[in-house]
Amino acid sequence: MPKLVIRIDFPTFLLPVLALWLYWRRNKFREAGRELWMNLFFLYGLAVTYVTFFPLTIRVSAARHVNMIPFVEMKWLLYRPLVAVLNLGGNVVMFAPLGFFLPILWARVRGFWKTAGIGMLLSLSIEFLQYLTADREADIDDVMLNTTGAILGYWLYLLWNSIQKKAEA
C-alpha cells in the first residue's frame, strides 16, 4: 500500500494563522504593555512551532518512533558534544520563554507548579503531534528538558519581578 504524504511549508501555515491572530486581537486591546507581551508570546509560539514541526510532513501508514525511556537519547549525546550542547541546550532554551511569559500574561498561572505543569503538558503535546506526523522522533528526554526550560523561565520571571518591584519602591 503506498504511503500518503502531505507536506506543508511554513509560509502556507503562517498566513492563515497570522490572519486569525490579527482578527482575534482586533478588539482585545486593553493596555499597550499587555498587548506587547501578548504579541511577543504569539511570536514565540510561532518560533516554537517552526522549530518543532517544520517542514511539516504528515505520513500516513509510516513507521513511527518513540522513546519512553528517560536519558537514553541523552546518553548517546555524550559521544557527540556539539550535538549534545545544541540538543540539550536548545530544548531547555526553547521553553524558557514559556515559563517567563505565562506568569506575566496570566495571573492564574503565577505559581511554580502551574507553570511547570503547563510546560510539561505543552511539551507532551508537541511530542505526541510529532509522533502522529511520523516525520520526527518523539522522545521523553525532550519533555524533561522542555519542562526544565519552563522552570528556568519561571525563575527568570521571579528575578525580573523582584527587580521590577525594587525599581518601583
Rank of each mutant, 00 (worst) to 15 (best):
K3M: 08
V5C: 00
P11T: 02
P11K: 04
L14R: 05
K28R: 15
L36Y: 10
N39T: 11
N39P: 01
L40T: 01
G45E: 03
T49D: 02
Y50K: 15
Y50N: 11
Y50E: 08
T52P: 04
T52A: 14
F54I: 03
L56Q: 09
L56N: 06
T57F: 00
T57L: 00
S61Y: 13
A63W: 11
M68A: 14
M68D: 04
E73G: 14
M74E: 02
W76E: 11
W76Q: 14
L77G: 06
L78Q: 08
V83M: 14
L88H: 01
L88K: 10
L88Y: 07
V92W: 07
V93P: 05
F95R: 04
G99E: 02
I104F: 10
A107P: 05
R108F: 05
V109H: 05
F112E: 01
G117V: 01
G117N: 08
M120N: 04
M120G: 08
L122P: 04
F128N: 01
F128A: 15
Q130I: 03
T133S: 15
I140H: 07
I140A: 08
D141W: 05
D141K: 11
T147M: 02
T147I: 00
A150M: 02
L152F: 12
Y154L: 00
L156Y: 11
L158H: 07
A167I: 12
A169D: 10
